[in-house]
Design a protein around this nucleic acid. Sequence first.
DNA 1: CTTGCATAGTCATGAATGTGAGTAGTCATT
DNA 2: AATGACTACTCACATTCATGACTATGCAAG
Lengths: 189, 189
Amino acid sequence: MALRHAVLAALIEGEFSGYQLAKAFDVGVANFWYAQPQQLYAELARLEKEGLVAGREVAQEGRPNKRLFRVTDAGLAELEAFTAASAKPAVIRDDLLVKVQAADRVDTAALVAQLTERAGMAQAKIALFGALLRRLRGDRTEEEFLRHGDRIGPYLTCLRGVAFEQENRDWCTRTIAVLEERRQARARH
Amino acid sequence: MALRHAVLAALIEGEFSGYQLAKAFDVGVANFWYAQPQQLYAELARLEKEGLVAGREVAQEGRPNKRLFRVTDAGLAELEAFTAASAKPAVIRDDLLVKVQAADRVDTAALVAQLTERAGMAQAKIALFGALLRRLRGDRTEEEFLRHGDRIGPYLTCLRGVAFEQENRDWCTRTIAVLEERRQARARH
DNA sequence: CTTGCATAGTCATGAATGTGAGTAGTCATT
DNA sequence: AATGACTACTCACATTCATGACTATGCAAG
């Protein structure tokens, strides 16, 4: 049950609609969790029923009405309790790692293609996160911002996202190089 | 459906029983996937029914009999197909990130405790993976091994595991430092 | 002499997550 | 005038993952 806490954590930034959250949790800036829109709507409904978030209808013209949610005091207390509880260790779970684990017995060309694609995606995310970090800290340096800024939570998680994707990219390019070199070595015989 | 492929990938290393796989997929060397014993037994049963792995009973004395599994040709073909298919992007999903995202509104002390614990766990994993890497490459250098060794798949995934845990540890210590400094700065006022 | 741990598994159940499809209006493009 | 894209959300179902409890046997430490 960590999705509910991820939603609560996202909502301490301000009021958001399910649709806005869905954007944030999807492809874009899912730097600390990922979820499908359907999950979010369902979770928001549950959270509201339990009084951890409060929603209010906002009429719009030219587009459908929306419901904005904010965290209640009970929601904050729930987050507090969640933070105090010990976190389960995070594990990597990546299709690509499974494929590389099997690298010695499967077609290398297909694998290299996958790795190349992934390296590109990682690079794109690095750029995205970099822009987000600059936006968050404004004209301050990182040190300055982390010392005196308010709302450093999103910044810190984003830093982790950047580091993860850099690692991702570097490992992909390294692995590609290794696989390519071995392929050429085999071809020479 | 990536667990099945993770099992297949693990089995190209040789014959293993469900129990042995469970050990490898659990706390120890889950450097490319993680699963509970029950999942593995269930998956192995399914894979055998579909002919992707073949099991054979091995009688033992002093301990229960076991069933060793190996990948069949059909299993290798399945792995091949899996490798060719495009991998879904890996996302971080970590309770700890959710907690840090909420850092601006929850108790910092509890959070720092969590981060400290996690940093320690990461450090332990780094040591574990380091030992595994040395065992895998024997007396060769890494370059040498990656160029000419056979079965480099596990080595490459383990490299990724090490890098991930180092990143993990560094980010934890950095985040701890930031939170602590802010706490002290607040205390001075 | 019994408590606890390791081997080697099975069964059942619930929670979390993913996927596909559908509704309904607005706006811009072709 | 139709097609597709964006906002905003809902329903239903399937798959995957996690959890606890349980059965056996053998071995070693206290």
